[in-house]
Design a protein around this nucleic acid. Sequence first.
RNA 1: GGAGAGGUGGCUGAGUGGCCGAAAGCAACGGUUUGCUAAACCGUAGACUGCGUUUUAGCGGUCCUCGGGUUCGAAUCCCGACCUCUCCGCCA
Length: 425
Amino acid sequence: MLEMSYIREHQDEIRNVIERRHVKVDLDGLLQVDEQRRSSIQQVDMLRAKRNSLSEQIAKMSADERQETVSQVKSIKVELENLESGLTELEASYQALVRDVPNLLSPEVPSGKSDADNVEVRRWGTIPKFSFAPKDHVALGEALELIDFDRAAKVAGSKFYFLKNEAVLLELALKQYAINLLVAEGFSPIKTPVLATKTVLDGTGYNPRGAETQIYSIENSDLAMIATSEISIGGYFSGEVLPAASLPAKFAGISECYRTEAGNYGRFSKGLYRVHHFDKVEMFIYALPEQSEAMHQYILSIEEKVFQGLEIPYRVVAICDGDMGAVAYRKYDVEAWMPGRGEQGDFGEVTSCSNCTDYQARRLNVKYRTPDGKTALVHTLNGTAIAISRGLIALLENHQTEDGNIRIPQALRQYLGGRELLIQK
RNA sequence: GGAGAGGUGGCUGAGUGGCCGAAAGCAACGGUUUGCUAAACCGUAGACUGCGUUUUAGCGGUCCUCGGGUUCGAAUCCCGACCUCUCCGCCA
């Protein structure tokens, strides 16, 4: 959420941002409601002031003096009730409209229409050349008895999977690897609730309602399942004022993530790439405003470090305005090489990191105390350390051997009893 | 699940209808003292918001978990929700 006074005073900028992000926002409607809302507030406040001062006088009056003033205040009360109910309605539509206005865009954000216009920033690693026909992770998973999609479909439907045997060990190893790396960087590991209230979902910018929601809601409750621990960690400090010295506060969130993937059937959704449920180690940072840009680069550098350690080639992509959600001020993806993707192999998104500036913090009401004793909104940032499902795709496909085994990269071996190959004969 | 107690500012905690945006203490900020640090002393201070001011200056409104209600007037009384604690029961 942006500050209304900012929206009002920078209408051209806001219009521009809305256009660049291809979001539907009724800015004129918002400005109009805001106008009405503020004039209604003035009327209500004036009437309340009158009531308050009369009530105060009543306290000092003798019993028989009171009569007239009391009835006067009674009539103000009736008038006030009408105005207040009008204001309540205006407030509701104002809230609904203002939350649709997306975050500002960093001047560094490239412009474009869709993900095709994202800008490659750099590449790392050498794309593997196989002397044999490489398999994709679905075939590998089946052949090595690592993943079972068919039986998962019986249990929970499509886009679910059983992870089995060495794949489970691999998942645990990947988590441990990522967590240890983050702990060494000073992140606090945190395991979060996997359900969160709709207030928290809204605050982080995840809309639990509507046909296109990514969020599973729990029936007969105010709860929904989190799509990422970004949501629960964002709620962690909501409504709090943090000491400035505690910032940046760096969290390594560990949770399962649940996504409906509504409307995504068939589209780049083979195997583990797009699933309803996966484990993820997530970075989340609460930062001072002046730190956030550097923290964003820092998160990106850790994402790269994770994949460098896994010896997986990747590229870093700067997300263009037309492909960015409403919350991020600036965003990068890391796309790992996936030999089984498409005909020749292709890059596929494995991580994503956003600087949300104060957009989430304003709605979640997370502040810090400035040196002069005032409060100000923090900045929030998030990024994927490793999403296990997609990490597995890259790992299995890149490190497959001719005889159908999987080579374990050096950095991961200590978490797998030192083994060099996944399947031990 | 049953019974009871409770939720007040950054924190601890007083306040049972008007003198309360709220005592006191701690923390914070400014200053004095000090070789430095600490301590001591003095002072300043809540958040959000509307109008105004345009480099400061005010004047209002709202906020004592949240939502309703009673009242001219609610932190205070009533109802509901949520959360916390204690005891009992049940259970990974």
